[in-house]
């Protein structure tokens, strides 16, 4: 059995090749995006500063603070913008540029903010500055990290379920002959794909509602906007992700190759769509690249509704993009679909 399984694996050329290509592409991709430098743990916003790129040595930041490792300084033009990013956990600490006494902002809901505050205070020399540094409160309701993270986890779960539940399953059905059996019935490809999509969307929405209610019962999430708007965005998002799953399901009979392709799409989407961490401070092209993923737009819209109380008009750009993506994926999936190839 050992030999047989190895032969099976080595002779499935697509899957075999992909096993090497996938880690290589992921490593290369992350290398390009994040560079060879270590992962930045803390993001410090500096205002007022016109450009995102900051040369700390040319500012009034205490030397001891600017030279600390694992800290990234991000220029922000206005205080309002800075506070908004701080509130949404896109930065951990906000500092006003200028001579002492320093004015800084930190969210009490952010563990990283607390650590960076202690590091900042420790770097103030002479010690009298420590008493001069003024901590300012953030106005409005503080958003806990969990509030920020929760929609990301829900959307990520939605993504995996849509891509695997449709993409992988249909490829398996093609391989084992279920699709062949269905092909000889009057069922059209459009009807079959619609049924697959609707079933998955229903399951995604059902899961979402159950998980939301369960988690909200325990953690009491803050939702400033409308629940109806949230449901609408999640519905559009699940439709879009399911449609992407249909594109992946449209061809192929190798489950292992399809697994590789699914990983290749889902991993970068998970890391670049701000599920776990913000892309604040990342190069502009990385932010641009993240916009090709539906998950980015789902999360942007959901977080705006949850944390800023935005209405549908304020997330109309995300709605339009998700709608266009859905239509494009559905069209491509239907065009490429084959019952037996």
């Amino acid at each position: 059995m050992f030999k047989a399984r190895n032969r099976e694996f080595f002779r499935d050329r697509a899957a075999f090749g992909w096993n090497f290509m996938f880690p290589f592409l992921i490593v290369a991709g992350f290398g390009v995006i994040f560079g060879a430098k270590s992962h930045t743990e803390y993001k410090i916003g500096l205002f007022p500063h016109e450009t995102v790129m900051v040369a700390p040595a040319e500012t009034d930041i205490p030397n001891e603070f600017s030279q600390m490792r694992y800290i990234e300084f991000i220029g922000i033009p206005t205080k309002t913008e800075g506070l908004d990013k701080l509130k949404h956990h896109k930065i951990d600490f906000l500092l006003k540029l200028g001579d002492p006494p320093y004015e800084y902002y930190v969210s009490d809901a952010s563990p990283k903010g607390y650590v960076i505050e202690q590091m900042f205070k420790a770097s103030l020399i002479p010690p009298t500055f420590k008493t001069d540094a003024q901590k300012k409160e953030i106005q409005g309701t503080a958003i806990r990290y969990l509030d920020w993270l929760f929609p990301g986890i829900l959307a990520m779960n939605m993504m995996f379920s849509a891509l695997w539940g449709v993409g992988y399953v249909v490829v398996r059905y093609r391989k084992n002959g279920v699709l062949k059996r269905l092909k000889v019935t009057p069922l059209s490809a459009f009807e079959y794909l619609s049924a697959q999509a609707l079933s998955r969307i229903f399951l995604l929405m059902f899961t979402l509602v159950v998980v939301w209610i369960g988690c909200d019962f325990i953690f009491s999430f803050t939702v400033l906007g409308s629940y109806v708007d949230l449901i609408l965005i999640f519905f559009l998002g699940s439709t879009s992700l399911t449609a992407l799953g249909l594109v992946l399901a449209s061809r192929g009979t190798s489950e292992e190759f399809t697994t590789g392709i699914l990983n290749f799409i889902s991993w970068p989407m998970m890391f670049l769509s701000e599920v776990w961490f913000s892309l604040e401070g990342a190069p502009q092209w990385v932010k641009g690249a993240s916009r090709v993923f539906p998950l980015t737009h789902i999360l942007t819209a959901v977080r705006k509704i949850m944390h800023d109380g935005a209405g549908l008009m304020e997330v109309s750009v995300e709605i339009a993009i998700l709608t266009l993506m859905t239509l494009a994926f559905l069209g491509l999936g239907a065009l490429m679909f084959s019952w037996n190839k």
């Binding site: 059905y173 084992n176 002959g177 279920v178 062949k180 059996r181 000889v184 019935t185 009057p186």
Partner: peptide, 17 residues
């Protein structure tokens, strides 16, 4: 198109849902 409505098939091997 109606041909599919009028035929029944038992394949040599079939997987089912």
């Amino acid at each position: 198109a109606s041909f599919k409505d009028e035929i029944g098939i038992q394949f040599q091997t079939t997987s089912l849902l």
